[in-house]
């Protein structure tokens, strides 16, 4: 099975990755090979097998509703690529 470059571009869009033409071509080839490889799973009979999301199946892990310290604003924003006052700033979102 081979992925089309359009499929690769669509996946890149979902993943918010800008790809160069070169990367798109390479990934089309690589992903086709990898998808071919993982397709061997289709031959495993998994009828009546429940998916296993975690090897250690814990349940009911909670914390109490007790306040913990928040970060000072300056620390929260210390790593922000752009801040405006006490806000994170991003290119205008119109909705």
């Amino acid at each position: 099975m081979s992925l089309s470059i359009d499929q690769v571009r669509w996946v890149a869009h979902l993943a918010r990755l800008e790809l160069t033409d070169d990367e798109a071509a390479t990934f089309t080839r690589d992903l086709t090979a990898i998808v071919d490889y993982v397709n061997q799973l289709q031959s495993v009979n998994t009828d009546n097998v429940e998916p296993l999301a975690h090897a250690v199946e814990l349940t009911n892990v909670f914390r109490a509703d007790e306040p913990a310290e928040s970060l000072p604003v300056d620390q929260a924003l210390a790593n922000a690529p752009r801040r405006e006052g006490d806000f994170y700033a991003v290119p205008a979102v119109l909705d």
């Binding site: 495993v44 429940e50 090897a55």
Partner: peptide
Amino acid sequence: DAYYLKALKVRRLIK
């Protein structure tokens, strides 16, 4: 279904 969920099922078989 064909990839992620299938893999989770095979994961159980491996375990």
